[in-house]
Design a protein around this nucleic acid. Structure first.
Lengths: 350, 350
DNA sequence: CTGAAAGCGCTTACAG
DNA sequence: CTGAAAGCGCTTACAG
């Protein structure tokens, strides 16, 4: 691999001149410019980005911290972040935490030693709990939070509007005539997003009072479709009465729908099922009614913010941006037992 | 951020001594070791990995090149590669090509300037076609290929055994009494994996002759479940007769199953459907019969090889490792029209 | 417009 | 066992 010195020798100039034409950072005579360009071409020279990064300034590196790649939500986010980064000539390190604090610590150490300019972090509990964000900030590394639950006041956070979206779900379901619903998802004590959605449902149900009185039960699973399947089977075995299940996300909803079907129940005639995120919602039949969010747009907005922070460097006040979700009605929801029948036109006079 | 010089001053030693205790690369007296350790602790010192990387040797960086994150196959691979890398203290750059050659070129330039030690590349056509692999090799960057079709003789390749797996599929289907099958997937002219699977099916069918005569038709889609859905609808509209559909992968199979159901056909009673990869196979009802592969094991094997190459550096002969796939029978396949009935025990004397 | 020199944060012979 | 010095490949004042 040729270096700047070899190019300088080949072109018969100083390395400062080579540097100047590479970055056109100051005027160079046409004659020398030409010779340098030819030498670069001839030697197939490429500046060493690590050496550049060592000089202080920007390293052109960011990190993306995420719990795992198992939930389809994250790969989509990653793809959009990486795309935004490559457009601005930044490279992205991928760091999965597997929801373990010691993996966050591992990456904290490693990334701190690597002069990264910024980090996009999902706001999952192992990251929020660790000192990673604070340490990054105190070392001048810009941080933006994206999805995952709890909000951190120190940084810009791009999160889903779970409060509004759960309200939408509950009023939709109550309008359909459902009065006994269950929330099926990861234990709210262990997952911030699950907790946000569960509490959102609780509050939304309170908000419906005294007009509509809705009963809420819970059933816990982990993050996989298979675990949701098992939880739904147990729920059925418990004998509890319900007409609708609100699921943590679409993967969970898929497991639930399959469990209900396998137990001989019809979705949505016997039970309505609703998901979140709109990831694998169209994989099942009936396709899932779900709360959708523009993941790409979310990631792009967060990325734009991160690069603005990196490149401006004057303290912008951190803000929380709540991304709205929208109800997408498909086949997995239908009228429940308490649906008030619409007045038939025939009953109207004339 | 403290540097080695500040630590040396704090401990009252030379920077060479600090370096020696950090890497315990040569003996240091207990007394100095202790002072250095205290200074490191006090200043919260972390060695700059970029500076280290600049010294030649290993940079501790690898790249993972992949078409996209949309196919669930790739996130699983990424997760395993990243895990293997972090165990050995390597960082991984994620590079998605979106099947575009100019994105491969972009990353070729960028990674060449970044002293990466190695690269894991999916053998998708845009990567195989570009000069990336050859350029990396000539710059001393180790490369291992993983899944995706065509094999490159210059590098170790860990690929799926599509030849054997398609044979398995065809003899399974012929044993079930299917004689008219269609292959539904991306145009083989555009996707190497699709071409491998299509040709494998063609060959397997030839291999069954003259005992069994199977007809093979094709229907093309892209990589998404939605596109497969449309292709299946068109196939149905064409009026062609068939009793089984072999799908490019599980996502495609999901689209096909849903299209068949939405058109009032029963899976598997009217049409058997089979997928590949075992990604989202259990999301549908009936669950998909599919050819499964241990993605994690595949990625681990390829990663181990890559790090062996990086750390040994003496020329190991490139080999092709074909990972076997195994048939997982679920509900989407059943006996076809030509199933020969087994002899009933009642017909046997005594 | 051009180049010699210092310096980014490290490691590694080399001398003592 | 310890440290002064050279050097990895660049950029950036500074002089001319």
């Amino acid at each position: 691999m040729a270096n700047i010195r070899q190019v300088a020798r080949e072109a018969g100039v100083s390395i400062a001149t080579v540097s100047a034409v590479m970055n056109n950072t100051k005027a160079v005579s046409p004659e020398l410019t030409k010779r340098v360009l030819q030498a670069i071409e001839k030697l197939d020279y490429r500046p060493n980005l690590l050496a550049k990064a060592l000089l202080g300034k920007n390293s052109g590196l960011i990190a993306f911290l995420v719990p795992s790649m198992t939930n389809p939500f994250y790969p989509d986010l990653l793809e959009a972040v990486e795309h935004a980064a490559s457009e601005r000539n930044y490279g992205v390190f991928i760091c999965t935490t597997h929801r373990q604090v010691d993996r966050v610590d591992y990456y904290r150490e490693r990334l701190l030693g690597m002069n990264i300019d910024g980090a996009m972090v999902t706001l999952s509990s192992e990251i929020v709990k660790s000192q990673l964000v604070q340490d990054f900030l105190s070392h001048g590394i810009k941080v933006v939070g994206i999805t995952g639950g709890r909000v951190m006041p120190e940084i810009d956070c791009y999160v889903l509007d779970d409060e509004t979206s759960t309200q939408t779900v509950c009023s939709y379901l109550s309008g359909l005539g459902h009065r006994e619903v269950v929330y099926l998802g990861p234990d709210p004590a262990k997952s911030t997003t699950s907790s946000l959605r569960y509490k959102g449902i609780q509050n939304a149900i309170k908000g419906l009072l005294p007009t509509v009185k809705m009963e809420l039960a819970t059933s816990f699973c982990t993050y996989s479709e298979g675990s949701a399947y098992q939880a739904a089977i147990s729920l059925l075995a418990s004998g509890r009465s319900f007409s609708a299940i609100i699921c943590y996300n679409d993967q969970v909803a898929v497991g639930v729908v399959n469990a209900l079907k396998d137990q001989g129940l019809d979705v949505p005639d016997d039970v309505s099922v609703i998901g979140f995120d709109d990831t694998v919602a169209s994989y099942t039949r009936p396709a899932l009614t779900t709360m959708a969010v523009d993941r790409k747009g979310l990631a792009e907005a967060a990325s734009t913010r991160l690069f603005t922070l990196i490149e401006s460097s004057n303290g912008i006040e951190p803000t929380v941006v709540k991304i709205p979700m929208s109800l997408v009605v498909r086949g997995s929801t239908a009228a429940g037992p308490y649906r008030s029948r619409p007045v038939r036109p025939a009953e109207m006079p004339g």
